[in-house]
Write a protein that binds this DNA or RNA. Structure first.
Lengths: 185, 185
DNA sequence: AAATTTATGTCAGCCTTGTTGACATAAATT
DNA sequence: AATTTATGTCAACAAGGCTGACATAAATTT
């Protein structure tokens, strides 16, 4: 196993990559570890329900945008309908989400949370919100805006539109104008 | 298939969850979308190599901590050795990483990048670093510290130790002092 | 009215990346 | 000499992505 033909050994580099290589490793790693722990609380809770992260995302957005259609949800999540179908079916079968046939277009299925689904969404979001609030206590009030601006700038410009439409959301960082009221019927 | 029994419909909730429910949805969603796009650049690049995110993480940390052992890498990544084995074997077979038998303990396998592995790590990190730099241009210089403090506070306290050990990394946040550039040692 | 497109659902199979359990080997430690 | 440790490996399984193909109902176009 060990026997390596010395001939085929590529030379090992023994010096670490650092910020001197022109890369902001410090921030890259902070972002990686921060997100990993950010997802760990809901992950643990989900496991007790027999659900995974995919279920979390669906429950989250259906609660944030009740009545969105399957196609709209696919667009937010950027996954295929076959992928969505599996978790969505489970959530419907177990009573967390209901589908209602669209009024203006009866082909569409509008997705709504049930009371059970609402409770789950809140339970999943609570520890994440707590973690964020705790991290913000170390900062000045105006620093919250700094963090928001940073995170928002990390998002691809063309995808920022989606975020702005979310209710009571982070709205616009640069111009404080409000998003136009979606006729959520 | 389509036929819905009205009787079995749990009641649909039509109002969205908002910040009024006591949850910081704005930040939760910003963090979600920011991280999603943060990983999208390297993901695309990895696909051209036939690699995935798992390979990225291994290449990253082997380049940041050359000579770390398999056990140490497992501890950083928090995965099982069987999971690691698959991707590590591929990276070794394709010449991105080499193993060298430990000197003080010959059971250990120290992991090092090759020149090829170093190049890959840099290529993967470059777009992420660029994205971060771009996001930071919207902020004052001192705001960088705000963002660092925030991200670091998002990490579980007991896991923060790992971060501090990384070379040229984000030093200590709590003792705000700090981070004196490079005069150290 | 007929043909086509759209929104959704579903079947089948594949891939990556995580998991557990069991077992093997070499080297270090007791 | 016996045990423990670091690593590797085989086998099986699961979640959650993916693609391709096909079905149905409803809307839209011709």
């Amino acid at each position: 196993m060990m026997a390596k033909k010395p001939a085929e050994l590529a030379k090992a580099i023994r010096t670490p990559l650092t910020v001197d290589d022109g890369i902001d490793f410090s921030m890259i790693e902070l972002f990686f570890f921060a997100y990993r722990d950010f997802t760990s609380d809901p992950d643990q809770l989900l496991a007790t329900y027999g659900f995974g992260r995919a279920h979390h995302r669906v429950v989250h957005f259906v609660n944030r945008i009740p009545g969105l259609t399957v196609a709209e949800l696919l667009d937010v999540l950027k996954i295929t309908k076959q992928s969505l179908a599996r978790v969505l079916k489970q959530l419907i079968d177990t009573g967390y989400i209901v589908q209602i046939q669209g009024l203006r277009d009866r082909r569409q299925r509008e997705l709504y949370p049930t009371a059970k689904g609402r409770d789950l969404a809140l339970a999943l979001a609570a520890p994440q919100s707590r973690r964020i609030a705790n991290a913000l206590t170390r900062l000045d009030t105006q620093d919250r805006e700094t963090v928001e601006t940073f995170l928002k700038s990390m998002v691809d410009p063309d995808l920022r539109a989606q975020i702005e439409q979310l209710p009571g959301g982070a709205g616009n960082v640069q111009d404080k104008a409000v998003a136009e009221p979606e006729a959520t019927r």
